[in-house]
């Protein structure tokens, strides 16, 4: 298995609170890896570290063998040019039209002619099924269309590596399934390494080749879908069978909670 990303001994804090507790994992290249976990398990924090938005307290993140945690901004920008990110809310720039948004990374990082850029933008928009929406502003698009436009922008420079932050959050099942199909298409047609952070089970079973599961800042599982289904780890079973977490307190603990001490 060829590794696209390798995380070694990652520890991170928000203030005094430890979010990721010394985690190590590797993400295979050319496959779709899903990072799975409940709310607050640290999966979004992990994603922010993988794209270099946050610096860890300790640990290494190797992308194509190079540690991005010790890179200077210029080197990191070079790495970022070869990765695309689709944010949860798509994060399109609201002051620009859809085509200007998609053209932005191309304009900033290449010296192509305007006509070439226009063709590239139209190709990307066509790929995500948004032909004809070039001159719309993000506020005029629906949630699903925004995500598609965000994906077109993430793909503008033909990255090797693409990250999705909760792609189906806030979308109806039909639109979410459409987005999942698009993710599969990217893997099969462009052979991209895809990393998806999500907690939506239907989507996981549709797109994942490889699953990493986080729980309370720890990696509790990494392996294929079949291995995930076969796992007998109680936390994983709870997640897969959608069972609520029962918080059991001893009478003393309960008293301490309500007494506020």
């Amino acid at each position: 298995m060829e590794k696209a990303i390798e995380v070694i001994g990652l520890v991170t804090h928000y203030g005094d609170r430890e979010i990721l507790k010394n985690i190590s994992l590797s993400i295979p290249s050319g496959k779709t890896t899903v990072i799975l976990g409940g709310s607050g398990c640290g999966k979004s924090t992990l994603l922010k570290h993988l794209i270099g938005l946050l610096k860890p307290t300790r640990g290494k993140i190797l992308i194509n063998g190079k540690d991005i945690t010790v890179m200077k901004d210029e080197e990191l920008d070079e790495v970022r040019k070869r990765m695309g990110v689709l944010f949860q809310g798509a994060a399109l720039l609201n002051s620009m039209t859809v085509s200007e948004n998609v053209a932005l990374p191309i304009r900033e990082h290449t010296r192509l002619k305007e006509s070439t850029i226009q063709i590239m933008v139209r190709m990307k928009l066509d790929l995500v099924g948004l032909s004809g929406f070039d001159n719309f502003y993000p506020s005029q698009l629906s949630g699903g269309m925004k995500k598609r436009a965000g994906l077109a922008r993430a793909m503008a420079l033909d990255p090797e590596l693409i990250f999705f932050d909760e792609p189906s959050a806030g979308l109806d099942p039909v639109t979410a399934a459409g987005l999942d199909e698009l993710i599969l298409k990217l893997r099969d047609v462009f052979k991209m390494t895809i990393v998806v952070v999500t907690h939506e089970l239907p989507s996981v079973f549709m797109i994942a080749d490889y699953v990493i599961m986080l729980d309370m800042g720890d990696v509790i599982f990494s392996g294929t879908l079949d291995e995930l289904r076969a796992s007998d780890n109680p936390r994983i079973r709870m997640f897969l069978e959608r069972r609520p977490e029962k918080e059991t307190y001893s009478p003393e603990d309960y008293f301490r909670i309500i007494a506020g001490d």
């Binding site: 922010k48 794209i51 270099g52 938005l53 901004d73 990191l76 920008d77 070079e78 970022r80 040019k81 990765m83 990110v85 944010f87 949860q88 809310g89 994060a91 399109l92 720039l93 609201n94 932005l104 990374p105 900033e108 990082h109 922008r153």
Partner: peptide, 14 residues
């Protein structure tokens, strides 16, 4: 607040 600044950084734009 809308992660647009993060998006700029992730595109390698300061």
């Amino acid at each position: 607040a809308a992660e647009e600044v993060d998006a700029l950084i992730s595109m390698g734009i300061n």
